[in-house]
Design a protein around this nucleic acid. Structure first.
Lengths: 345, 345
DNA sequence: TATTAGCACTCTCATGTGAGGAGTGCTAAT
DNA sequence: ATTAGCACTCCTCACATGAGAGTGCTAATA
C-alpha cells in the first residue's frame, strides 16, 4: 500500500504497543512499554515517540490520559513490514490430508471440517466457501419477480442444468427493469462461462465505482450476487469460542458479529474481491468494504481446483489478532486444500 | 404428564401471569394482574392465590418483594391445559410450496430455507434436520482409533456405499474396547436397517437407564450418535435475530446459546427422543435432557418421507415463548414438508 | 540537542450512600 | 371469604467521592 517507513526506534515502539495490545486488549502506557520491553529510554521519551506515532495515525487514545491503542494503519504496517516468522502447520496438514484420504467425504463436509479446523486452531471464526459454478457456460438467465420483495433468478447452463435461486429485491427493481436486466445479460454474456461473466461484471463495477447509486451499477451487483450464490455454500464456524475473547464482552458487538455471520450476502461481496488475487489476503477493519465487518479483520486465501482459483478459505477475527500465526495458518491450509484437489480428491 | 388440575380461578391467575410474562419478561405483581386483566378481586386476594400457586410450584419469585415469574411447570400446564387457538399459517405453506415446486432445489437447500422461514416468522431459532440413512442396511461397521481423542466410524451399507465420520472419543475408549464394540454391533445388527438398529439401541438405552455410566451403555450412546450423524445435516438459523430479545442481554447466556447451536451432538441427542413419537413435541427448559438447553424451550415435529418419520424441524427459543403460535407454526410446517415429499419433491 | 525528572491535570472506574419504588406478607376489619 | 392498611424487604438508580493510571508540558540535565 503506502510505502511509509518509520525509523527504527519508532518502529520498535510501535511493535511493542501492538504486541502488548494483541496479548491483552488494554490501552498501552509509556511506562509499561519501557518496563516490559526494556528500552533504555525513560517513559517520557517513549511518550514523545508515541505522540509522534499518534500524529502519524498509527496510534490512538480512547480518551485523554489513557494509554495508546493501535489503529488499523498500525496493523497494516505491522503486517506489511514487520511480520516474518512463519509458523509450521504440518500437523494441520496431516490431519486434513488423512481426512480426505480415508474416505469418500464430499466436498461440503471437507470444507466444513476445514472451517472448523481453522477455527479451533486460531480461536477465531473459520471460513470456507465452496466453489461456485465457475466453469459452466451461460445459456440463459432470467429474473422473475417473486413473492413480496423477492426475485427468482433462473439460470440455464450448457450442461442443461437449470438452477434457481431466490434473492431479495433490495433495490426495489420493478418488473420492466428486471426484464431489461435479463435482456442485457443474455445479449451480452450468452456463451461465456460464469467465471468470465463474473470477472467482467466486477470490471464494470470497478470502472463505474463513482456512480455508486446508479441503477445500472446496482443491478450489476445483483447479477453478480445471483451468479455467485448459485451453487456455493458458505461455512462459518466457531462463534462461541470467539466470544470468549475479552473484546466481545459487549452485547451490541456480539449482535453485530452474529448478524455478519448470517449475512451471506456480505460474505459474497467480500469473496468477490478476493477471487481476483492470489495468495493470502489480509483485510484489516475499515479496509473492509462490508460495513458490518469494519471492526473485524479477515485473513483469506483462495484454493485452486483444476488449476484455477475456485473457492476461498480463511479466518475472521478481531482486529487485535495474532496476524503472523493466522497468516501462516491460512496459507498452509489453502495450499493443502489445493494439493488435495490436484490429486483428485 | 402429571394430571394436576387447578381450580378455575387459580388457572385464570396463572394464565394472566404467564401471558403478561410472555409479553414482557418482568416479574408480575398482584396489582398489575388485577388491573390489566380486570379481575373482580383485589390485589390482596390475588396475592393469596399467587402464594398458593407458588407453593404448588407454578410460580417463583426472583427475590422477596418482587413479582412472580412462571416456572417450567407453569409453562407445561399452560401448554397442556390452556392452549387452544390454532393460528393459520397458510401463507407460510404457500411460500414453501412454491419454493419446492418452482425449481430443482435439493433437499438441503429446502431444509435450510425451512429453518430460515421458521426463524423469521417466530423470531426464534429455526431448526431443521435432514433425514438420516434410515432405510439402508448395515453390512459392516468399524470404529477406528484416530488422531488424538477422535474415532473414525466407517460404515458400509448394502448400497455399497462407504461413509465415514469422525467423532470425538469423549468416553476415552481404548482400541480394544472399540473393537469389542465393533464386533458386538456387527454380530448383533448386520442385515438390519439403520433405522431398526437405532430404534433397538434406543430401546436398550432406555432399559438400562439406571446404569448411566455403565461402559456398555455409554458405548451404545456412541453408536447411536455415529449412526445418526452419518448423513444428516443440521440447520440452525436466526441467532442474531433472537439476540434482540431482552432475556438475551446477558453475555454468559449468549455464550451458552451459541455453544448449544454449535454442539451438534446435543441436538442429535435431542432429535433421537423426538423421532419415536408423532406430532408436535414441546420440551420446556429443564425437561430437556441436554444440560446446555435447560434455559430454552424446544418445539419440534417430525416430517415424513415415504411414509415414515425421517427428519425433524422446529424452533428453539426462550422458555418465555408464545407457545400457541409457535406450536401451530411448527405443526403446519411439518405437515407441508411431509406433503411435499409425498408428491415426490 | 536529545533525554529525562517532575508535576499538574484529566479521565476512568470502583465503591459507597441514600432516596424512591415496587411488591410482598400479615393482621385486622368488613 | 375478601379486602384495606401498613410495615417491611429488596432492588435500582443517581450521585458523589477517591484512588489510580497515564498524559502533556516545562525545566533541568548530560
Amino acid at each position: 500500500m503506502m510505502g511509509e517507513i518509520l525509523d527504527e526506534r519508532s518502529e520498535k515502539v510501535l511493535l511493542a504497543v501492538i504486541k502488548s495490545y494483541i496479548e491483552n486488549p488494554d490501552p498501552v502506557g509509556s511506562r509499561y512499554v519501557t518496563k516490559k520491553y526494556d528500552f533504555h529510554y525513560s517513559p517520557a521519551t517513549i511518550r514523545n515517540i508515541m505522540a509522534d506515532l499518534e500524529d502519524l495515525g498509527f496510534l490512538s487514545q480512547p480518551h485523554t490520559s489513557a494509554g495508546r491503542v493501535p489503529t488499523d494503519k498500525a496493523y497494516r504496517y505491522y503486517v506489511e513490514n514487520i511480520i516474518d516468522e512463519k509458523k509450521d502447520y504440518n500437523e494441520l496438514l496431516e490431519t486434513l490430508y488423512n481426512k480426505i484420504r480415508s474416505g469418500a467425504e464430499d466436498m461440503d463436509t471437507l470444507l466444513d471440517e476445514t472451517s472448523r479446523t481453522l477455527s479451533s486452531i486460531s480461536k477465531y471464526l473459520g471460513l470456507a466457501v465452496s466453489p461456485g459454478p465457475e466453469g459452466s457456460v451461460l445459456r440463459k438467465i432470467e429474473f422473475v419477480p417473486y413473492k413480496d420483495d423477492r426475485i427468482a433468478v433462473v439460470i440455464l447452463t450448457d450442461e442443461g442444468v437449470i438452477r434457481h435461486k431466490i434473492i431479495k429485491n433490495e433495490l426495489a427493481l420493478n418488473p420492466s427493469e428486471l426484464s431489461r436486466i435479463s435482456n442485457y445479460l443474455n445479449k451480452e454474456y450468452k456463451g461465456y462461462t460464469i467465471k468470465q461473466i463474473r470477472e467482467h461484471l466486477a470490471e464494470e463495477l470497478r470502472r463505474d465505482k463513482a456512480m455508486y447509486d446508479n441503477m445500472i451499477n446496482r443491478s450489476l451487483s445483483l447479477c453478480r450476487e445471483a451468479l455467485y450464490t448459485y451453487g456455493s455454500q458458505i461455512f462459518i464456524t466457531g462463534l462461541s469460542q470467539m466470544l470468549d475473547l475479552p473484546e466481545f464482552s459487549d452485547i451490541e458487538r456480539i449482535k453485530r458479529i452474529s448478524k455478519t455471520i448470517e449475512n451471506k450476502r456480505a460474505i459474497i461481496t467480500l469473496i468477490d474481491r478476493i477471487m481476483d488475487s492470489e495468495g493470502v489476503q489480509v483485510i484489516i477493519g475499515t479496509e473492509n468494504p462490508v460495513s458490518d465487518m469494519k471492526e473485524l479483520s479477515v485473513i483469506v486465501s483462495t484454493y485452486k481446483e483444476k488449476g484455477r482459483p475456485s473457492g476461498v478459505i480463511g479466518i475472521i477475527g478481531p482486529k487485535r489478532m495474532d496476524y503472523s500465526t493466522v497468516i501462516s495458518l491460512v496459507d498452509s491450509a489453502s495450499r493443502i486444500l489445493t494439493k488435495l484437489f490436484e490429486e483428485g480428491g
